[in-house]
Design a protein around this nucleic acid. Structure first.
Lengths: 217, 217
DNA sequence: CGAGAGTACCGTGTACTTTGAGTATCGGCT
DNA sequence: AGCCGATACTCAAAGTACACGGTACTCTCG
């Protein structure tokens, strides 16, 4: 039903893409300025325009949210990749990735809060159920893990669970760290999380063979 | 400034507690009925009363949210405890706990969505920055881990990070599993997560000594 | 002491204010 | 023709004001 694609229409395509990107960046700036709870009006104002324009390029607040997530994921993934490239061992790479994640959320906490706050779409199926930041990063991690598994000749069935799991691990600990500072430094936290991510809980209980326990939660 | 505590006042204390609990349960029922995006009016209607009443007992939607989280955490923790009590080895206990978590969110997905959706309070410090479900469970896990560490004579410094990390691990994988079903069964997912939580990533890469890699994410 | 007047709350509903998302409509540019 | 943009709206949902009515406690005066 949109088969025509008149040149009068297609001529704007480039502009549209540019404007969309521009608005996305403006949104991020607005989030930095007004906190994660920005209103559409503030976003528009930040882009020196008015809400109408925003709604011409994004149908929803949700769609804008997705765009912001994609943008942030882009830079975050890039930074994590770069950090991991420096690591010697796989473990060091993991540690570097975790540290990079923590660094970003520490530097840009409001954007992080925004991006982590999934809009709660009314569960009616929408084709793709909203891509939030964590899902995107999780997919990324899953891909890396799947590659590793393939290289090792193992089954890749668990890759997505593991990818999302690892990302969730870091995220949850980081959220708690941000929300309730305990004096732990970023580097300490990164080290703790690397230990856990790399060795799992077995390292916690195993050392002394774990005599049986009765009333643990 | 509230030193008096006239009996005319204190007489209502019990009632208040009861009513609050009642409203919390009504809220949960309303969530089941109308989805995670319930309005206050609907909650009130579900309790066969009107919004005013709800606001007499909860200052905010946020406060109601917290109450619901606490209630849910209560039953979730109980179930996880029960499940873990059945496990033989520590690893089996972990597996049982994970399975219990998955079971609950599968049975009550709307409540789960509600409870996982932190309200985004304006970052102004409020004393305790909103206790969401995941934080509560994370604290619980942290306590268990700390106990284990103490038993093993190790340093407990990492306990909170690890507790929240493990919970986040399960949560993230579960969220993804709920949002984008891949055909994985609950038991399979539980097994995968247990592997990861127990052994960490080392199990993924280590087997073949992981020859160096260059372009992983 | 004890009965009535007064007080300190709670319960409930209706109708309001406010805030923020999303829309309608008009004028203007290329 | 077809899109861009702004002003000025609608609409929904959170939260508030107010008014009425009730019950247990307390105070005071006989």
């Amino acid at each position: 039903m949109k088969a025509v694609r008149d040149k009068r229409t297609s001529r704007w395509d480039a502009h549209r893409r540019a404007r969309r990107a521009e608005l996305t960046d403006a949104a991020i700036a607005a989030i930095r300025a007004h906190g994660a709870g920005v209103g559409m009006d503030e976003v528009a104002a930040g882009a020196c325009t008015s809400k109408t324009v925003v709604y011409r390029h994004f149908t929803d607040r949700t769609q804008l949210y997705v765009a912001v997530c994609e943008r942030v994921a882009e830079v975050l993934v890039a930074q994590i990749r770069a950090a991991m490239a420096g690591g010697e061992s796989p473990r060091a790479k993991t540690a570097a990735g975790i540290a990079a994640y923590l660094r970003l959320i520490e530097n840009d906490p409001e954007v992080y809060r925004f991006v982590v706050h999934r809009p709660l779409v009314d569960s009616a199926l929408d084709g793709d159920p909203v891509a939030d930041l964590v899902s995107l990063i999780g997919d990324e991690a899953a891909a890396v893990i799947a590659a590793q598994l393939r290289r090792a000749g193992s089954d890749t069935g668990a890759a997505v669970s593991w990818g999302h799991g690892i990302v969730g691990l870091v995220r949850a600990a980081a959220d708690n760290w941000l929300a309730r500072p305990t004096g732990t430094t970023r580097d300490e936290l990164a080290a703790q999380l690397t230990d856990l991510a790399w060795s799992g809980l077995s390292g916690v209980v195993a050392p002394h063979q774990a005599s049986h326990k009765e009333e643990p939660a």
